[in-house]
Simulated assay, not measured.
Amino acid sequence: MQTKYSIVKQAIKSKILDGTYEPHHKIQSESEMMKQFSVSRHTVRLAIGELVSEGWLYREQGAGTFCADRTTHQAHSGIVSRKNIAIVTTYISDYIFPSIIRGAEAHLSAQGYHVSLFSTNNDHEKEREYLEMIITQGFDGAIIEPTKSAYANPNINYYLNLERLNIPYIMINAYYEALEPLRVLVDDERGAFLQTEHLLNQGHRDILGFFKTDDMQGNLRMKGYLKAHRMYKVPINPKYITTYQTEEKDEKPVEKLQHYLNQTGQKPTAIVSYNDELAIKLLNVLRENQVKIPDDISIVGFDNSFLTELSEVKLTSIHHPQADLGHTAGKLILDLIRTQQKNNESAEEIKSVLYPTELVVRSSTKDITVKGKGLENIK
Rank of each mutant, 00 (worst) to 15 (best):
I143Y: 03
S29V: 10
A178H: 11
L208H: 02
S346F: 13
S363E: 10
A106S: 13
Y260P: 01
T246Y: 14
V88K: 00
Q137I: 10
L257E: 01
I378A: 08
K35P: 12
S116H: 11
R45F: 12
D69E: 12
D69W: 06
R128L: 11
E248K: 09
G138L: 09
D18C: 05
I144W: 02
W56Q: 04
R338S: 13
T369R: 08
V360I: 11
V115E: 02
Q263L: 09
N153I: 05
L310I: 02
V186N: 08
V291T: 09
S352A: 11
Y176L: 12
N121V: 09
I134L: 06
H76R: 15
D214V: 12
S77L: 15
S116L: 09
A75E: 10
E358H: 12
I293Y: 01
E60L: 13
N237C: 11
R41M: 15
G330D: 03
T65P: 04
K4D: 14
K83Y: 07
E54P: 06
V39E: 08
G209H: 02
T71H: 15
K267Y: 09
P356F: 00
V184D: 04
F302C: 01
G64E: 10
N201M: 08
I170D: 01
L165V: 05
R41S: 15
Y95K: 03
K267T: 13
K342P: 10
Q10C: 12
A323Q: 11
I48M: 10
F211D: 01
S273Y: 03
G103R: 00
K249P: 02
M133G: 07
L179G: 03
G330R: 02
F139D: 01
P98M: 08
S53C: 09
F210Y: 09
L332Q: 08
T308K: 02
F193M: 03
S93W: 06
S31E: 14
N153T: 10
E251V: 15
E345K: 15
G265K: 04
T269F: 07
I134T: 02
N84G: 07
E247N: 15
P238G: 09
E163I: 06
N289Y: 11
M34Y: 06
Y225F: 11
R230C: 12
N155S: 12
P356Y: 01
T71C: 15
L354C: 12
N122P: 09
T89I: 07
I100A: 00
E251N: 15
H259K: 06
K26P: 04
N122V: 07
M216H: 12
I16L: 13
L334F: 07
I170S: 02
N166K: 08
K331W: 11
N166Q: 03
S317P: 04
E30P: 10
N173R: 08
G112I: 09
S99I: 06
V353P: 05
I167W: 00
H73C: 14
P23W: 04
V52G: 05
F66S: 03
P356C: 04
I27Q: 02
F302A: 03
N343W: 13
Q10I: 13
L57R: 04
L315G: 00
M133W: 09
